[in-house]
Design a protein around this nucleic acid. Structure first.
Lengths: 135, 135
DNA sequence: CAGTATCCTTGCGGATACTG
DNA sequence: CAGTATCCGCAAGGATACTG
């Protein structure tokens, strides 16, 4: 897409976007910014339904505490569902809800765009930091 | 979109997504989750180019400190550009870069989807909290 | 006007130990 | 196995005062 079109498109987009529900919007988007949520959603999107320990195994570096915490938050926002089988040795599985799947689908353009421009971002940061403005 | 299709689509999406660059991806997405970034981007998308004080006026509740901080971070990631006119009474203006405009465009589906489902999210939370699971 | 400089509170993310 | 319960360091976010 050329620059001309991006400018026009972004202006059209801005006009269409509203600032209502600013809190909620950020709350939902916060899932995409914090440490483990996106990984969980991605993994569940691929595997379908997994137990706590299975997710922990596939998510390198996550602690039990943070995984539980992340799962609770995703569950609270209706993005995943928790299935407790009430067995004596606990078995609990998690899966994306329809909402969670829609989040993934709607996040696709943004996600791929970021990955496609990884080098650009790194270059921008390097330039900024080299200019002595590092934060 | 019906449920059948969402499931298929989300699986296709998951397959297409990669987990590379997890840190960078989250760093960029963090802009969408934190308190003021999205507001700044939206305002600049509409207004084109604005001074520090102008942004502060339109962004209800932001403090000078946090606005400066937010602007630095957005600048570091190449999403906005800073124009310092070097005048005796300081005049500095900010505008979206091409990258920043692309971010907006690529975030459009996600943003509108969240706003369209605001009620669903609120209902999910209420149900969760009422079940006594509140975090 | 556009920032720094301080100080403060809150919550994130993590390490470790324990329980039904 | 799937969590709680603590304790901890650190950064986000904020209030207020000051500066070139």
């Amino acid at each position: 897409m050329d620059t001309e079109n991006i400018i026009k498109l972004s202006q059209a987009v801005c006009a269409a976007l509203t600032d209502e529900d600013d809190g909620l919007k950020r709350d939902i988007l916060a899932h995409t910014g914090n440490r483990w949520s996106l990984g969980v959603i991605h993994i569940l999107g691929i595997a379908g339904q997994l137990r706590h320990a299975e997710i922990a195994r596939r998510l390198k570096g996550v602690t039990q505490r943070m995984l539980t915490h992340t799962l609770r938050h995703l569950e609270r926002d209706g993005l995943i569902e928790r299935y407790d089988y009430q067995e004596k040795l606990p078995r609990v599985e998690y899966a994306l809800t329809a909402q969670g799947q829609e989040l993934l689908v709607n996040m696709f353009p943004l996600w791929t765009w970021i990955l496609d421009h990884a080098e650009t971002f790194r270059a921008a940061r390097a330039k900024f930091d080299d200019a002595g403005k590092a934060i």
